Amino acid sequence: MVSRVPMPRPESSSDLFGTLQREVNRVFDQMFRGGPAPLAGFAPSVEMKETDDGLTVTVELPGLEEKDVEVSLEGDTLTLSGEKRQETTEEKAGMHISERSYGSFSRTIPLPWAADPAQATAAFDKGVLTVTLKRPPEAKARTNRIPIGGAKPAP
């Protein structure tokens, strides 16, 4: 749980930037102290690449296993969801310390065309999910070239 500390009112813009810098440093100090990080708001990184054959969607899911992730496709929408669980146990100075964090995520990705679920594949390897979607024949790859013109003369 993060406790909120009221920030003092700055007198000038230089005080404002100093206060902002101290607050950012405090947040980073809390994040990197060690132990499990809170998982609220966990949003995996997604990369989507269009090829001549279709789309490849790559999602970084560190610390997850295949059984923790669900992939679904409905029309022109790809949905990725799952739950990330972190548990640590430590024996220290005669004390038993156990911490648990849980967080779920869901990412909905709009696609440029409706993909056929029967032609879609998904692979999970070392925390990286790769979803490959074939382009339907009616959705040809298109490039819309926009001509570049010179400056227009003033009227």
Rank of each mutant, 00 (worst) to 15 (best):
S3E: 11
P8W: 00
R9L: 14
E11Q: 09
E11H: 12
S12H: 10
S13C: 07
S14W: 06
L16G: 06
F17G: 04
G18L: 08
G18P: 03
L20S: 09
Q21I: 12
R22A: 10
R22K: 13
V24Y: 12
V24A: 05
R26G: 03
R26S: 07
F28E: 11
F28G: 02
F28V: 10
Q30H: 13
F32L: 11
R33I: 15
G34L: 06
G35V: 04
G35E: 06
G35P: 08
P36E: 12
A37Q: 15
P38E: 03
P38W: 05
A40Q: 11
M48V: 15
K49M: 10
T51R: 13
T56N: 04
T58D: 02
E60H: 11
L61V: 07
P62N: 04
P62R: 02
G63I: 03
L64Q: 02
E65P: 00
V69M: 00
E70A: 15
V71N: 00
E74H: 08
G75C: 03
T77E: 10
S81P: 01
Q86M: 09
Q86S: 08
E90W: 09
E91Q: 13
A93I: 05
M95D: 09
M95Y: 15
H96D: 09
S98L: 12
R100T: 12
S101M: 14
S106E: 10
R107I: 12
I109Y: 02
W113N: 01
A114H: 07
A114N: 08
A120N: 05
A122V: 07
A122G: 03
L129G: 02
V131S: 02
K134T: 08
P137Q: 08
E138V: 06
E138P: 01
K140D: 04
R142Q: 13
T143Y: 09
T143S: 07
G149M: 12
A151C: 04
K152W: 14
P153I: 01
A154D: 12
